[in-house]
Design a protein around this nucleic acid. Structure first.
Lengths: 202, 202
DNA sequence: GGTCTAAACGGACCGTAGTCCGATTATTAT
DNA sequence: ATAATAATCGGACTACGGTCCGTTTAGACC
């Protein structure tokens, strides 16, 4: 007869990463940060990364699943911090302020975030299909929807949130700033106008 | 002494396509349409296309520059028709109706267009960088900006047009319909709400 | 220490977009 | 018709993301 655990297996946590796996993950993350610091995210190829970290290519993909997955891992710290700030931090970004003000603050913070981590964020946007299935992206969108409802928006908050989220897409924001040469403040101002008009209604 | 043209060279038109080049271009377009009809745009690879058309791979790229370029060429007819309708056609899409009504009609038509040619449009969206530099995309955006101004929008019409254009991105629209299962009419309704609120202002 | 197993490893391999350059051919001038 | 020339052609080649599978090894149990 086999061992019967007191807790369901899935609650005892993952079966503990093997030590060589942990070592390689750290090596890979370190090497990735080095390469990005040297040449930027676009120049990071999976082959070079494997070589630099001294592991096989298969190992890279088993760890991170894909190039986008690697980039998301690299972003996860700042991403988590951002999430914590808009969900639990002080107003006007966090709870405590009116919905509209939180929306305005959210956009402003998001724009600032993209200005700082934009290239990485763009590289982390997986290939086409799953771009909108990334947990973080879905979270922002639900957050916007929530704030819209709280601000009294009546008409189809889900789709309005989708439209507003599209405005904050890293790709578009970076293009506006880098190609069109627009100042980030102008993006922030425009976002404030946009959400104000959308919320205030007709 | 060399020949002096009466007109600057660039005005005498392109130096006339060589007959074999024209023949190959037709062959390629035909083969591309066949392959897409058979297996959809995603299954069209440049190698298969070259093989089916009976030409070398280099020829494909010299003709169309890239995979996205090929897709744009395939779309150009319906794209031109669409452009003609919103620029010169009857109201409310074309000139003659108030700006807001034209904006609403524009979005509705665009959504319908994406529902029909969406996959092709998505494949035509070049790789990252130049997504917003495609002439057609810039044209829509300027058109939206124009209509916003005409409708009396005061605050930064350029950026508002960018945001609104983001809402109509084929990728997002298709995702909403295919993954979230939203009805296209709901997208149209939401677009009407959105532009109405944006234009009416505070 | 020895044995066993599942997990981790590594790098050869694949499909794809895009490039390059020597060979070919349409066109024009003579 | 012939020769000169410049555009076109074709397919081998590269770079990259991603997969596969035979081999190795960490860790648990004896």
């Amino acid at each position: 007869m086999s061992f019967i655990p007191l807790l369901p297996g899935s609650l005892s946590g993952p079966p503990a990463e093997r030590s060589d796996a942990a070592r390689n993950r750290e090596r890979l993350l370190g090497a990735a940060r080095e390469l990005i610091a040297e040449c930027g995210p676009d120049a990071l190829t999976m082959d070079r990364l494997a070589e630099r970290a001294g592991v096989g290519k298969g190992t890279v993909f088993r760890r991170f699943g894909s190039r986008a997955g690697l980039m998301m891992t690299l972003l996860s710290d700042s991403e988590a911090a951002f999430q914590a700030r808009f969900m639990f931090g002080p107003p006007p970004l966090g709870p405590g302020a009116p919905g509209l003000e939180r929306l305005i603050a959210f956009g402003a913070e998001r724009i600032a975030y993209v200005m700082e981590h934009g290239d990485l964020a763009r590289a982390a946007e997986a290939s086409a299909r799953s771009r909108y299935e990334v947990p973080a992206v879905k979270l922002w969108q639900r957050h916007i929807e929530l704030l819209l409802r709280e601000a009294g928006m009546d008409a189809d908050p889900l789709l309005m949130a989708m439209s507003l989220a599209a405005t904050l897409d890293p790709d578009r924001l970076l293009h506006a700033v880098r190609v069109h040469g627009l100042a980030p403040e102008r993006l922030t101002d425009s976002w404030r106008e946009l959400v104000t008009r959308v919320v205030r209604g007709r």
